[in-house]
Computed example of a mutant assay.
Amino acid sequence: MKKPVVIVTELEYRKGEAVFASASDLEIVPGPSAEEPLARLIREKKAFAVVLGVEKYGGPLYESLPAYGIIARFGVGYDGIDPVQAKEHALFVINTPGVLEGAVAEQTLFLAGALLRNIALLDKKMRAGTWTTHLGTELKGKIWVVIGLGAIGKQVSRIASFGFGARVFGCDTRLSDLKDLKKVCGIESASKDYFEIASAADMLSLHIPANRKTHHYLNSDRLRVLKSSAILINTARGSLVDEDALYDALAGGKLAGAALDVYQNEPYRPVHPKKDLRTLPNVVLTPHTSSSTAEACKRVAERVLQNIRYARTKEYQKMDLVF
């Protein structure tokens, strides 16, 4: 009997190669991430499932899969998937919650540390043969405002509070019991209103989903509320930040620094050619790698295949269904 075919975009295949290669019950085929050639490969192989990265898909992909086929995100965010087209073509969309939050939270703290202790700048100077010092800043006692108290936001709160002694303030429109947040996550204060809490921030990190409502969530108005000594960390989605407004704030001394792992355009390309974040000395940049640890990628690949197998056996209630 022919094995069911699953196409996995090449980058995601490499991230979980050991897991995908050991799947004896499925034919796992690496494929391009570009939509049109990916759709052709799906039709050619008669695949019933495709595993995708963070790219946006708007047309041929949905037509190439059979009804009740699977679109699986290699990760949690699914803003690259068009829910209308997925539903029109009777496709299941799944993700992998609960397996990469720790990796993203760690990267958030590491990026903050790189800024606060001038790691990237000092490394660059050392490689150039310059022995010099720059005063850094400690996390202990500083106010870290966490925007979005989902799984990642709560993990960041725990590490910053219990691990580093920071004073963590939380902001979430679905705010739950503060007493529980204090006990479990070390959150000292919380609000549903950004403007009520953000002005206190020494560090502010974003952990909210990307959608129409949160597009350019951090715009010039919200940036204006922050202290000039504050720093921003974004490991969520690039569309949350108005990069032109961020550039202006950083270049104009209205914000002390920014550490970014995600961008409006990926691979990074400045939204405005004269506002290239790479030219600023107070910015630390990484190429959307916060969840890319060997451990997290193994867990994600395993969860992806588990979901696909549930679909094959029609155990839909066990799947991590997005829609």
Rank of each mutant, 00 (worst) to 15 (best):
I143N: 13
I152K: 05
G58R: 06
A39Q: 09
G141V: 14
D261Q: 04
K87S: 13
G16R: 05
L250C: 01
I231V: 14
Y194P: 01
A301Q: 03
V51L: 07
K46L: 13
T214G: 05
Q107V: 10
R43N: 01
V84S: 02
A201L: 12
R269S: 11
G141T: 11
V104F: 01
G102L: 09
K254V: 10
T137A: 06
G141N: 06
F195Y: 08
K314L: 12
P30K: 12
L11V: 11
Y62W: 10
G238N: 04
D177Y: 07
M319I: 11
D242C: 04
L175G: 00
L277A: 02
A128E: 14
G75M: 05
E188T: 02
K125M: 15
I147H: 06
E12Q: 14
R309H: 14
A296L: 13
Q317M: 10
L226Q: 01
R127D: 13
N307K: 02
R158D: 14
K2L: 13
R73N: 08
L115Q: 10
Y62T: 07
K318Y: 05
L226C: 00
A201S: 10
L52Q: 03
Y247I: 12
K183H: 14
K318R: 09
A120Y: 08
F162M: 02
V271Q: 03
S64M: 11
K182F: 10
F323A: 07
A294Q: 02
T313L: 12
H89L: 11
M319E: 10
V54C: 04
D202R: 01
T9A: 08
V322I: 12
I71T: 02
A294C: 04
F169C: 06
L277C: 02
A103E: 12
R117F: 07
V84D: 03
E27A: 14
T96Y: 07
P66Q: 06
A166Y: 06
G77D: 11
V5N: 09
L232F: 02
P281C: 06
N282L: 13
A201R: 07
V262G: 02
Y217N: 00
T132K: 08
L285K: 01
T132Y: 06
Y247R: 00
I187S: 03
S239H: 03
V51C: 12
G252Q: 11
E106L: 12
V99L: 08
V29D: 09
E27Y: 08
K183T: 15
V156E: 10
F195T: 11
Q155A: 15
L65Q: 02
A49L: 12
L121E: 05
L305T: 00
L240V: 02
V76C: 04
S220Y: 10
R299E: 15
G238W: 03
L26Q: 03
R212S: 11
L65S: 00
T293V: 13
G257I: 09
R127G: 13
E188R: 01
P287L: 09
Y68D: 15
Y13I: 08
V156I: 14
G148E: 08
P30D: 13
F195W: 04
L260W: 12
V19G: 02
Y310N: 15
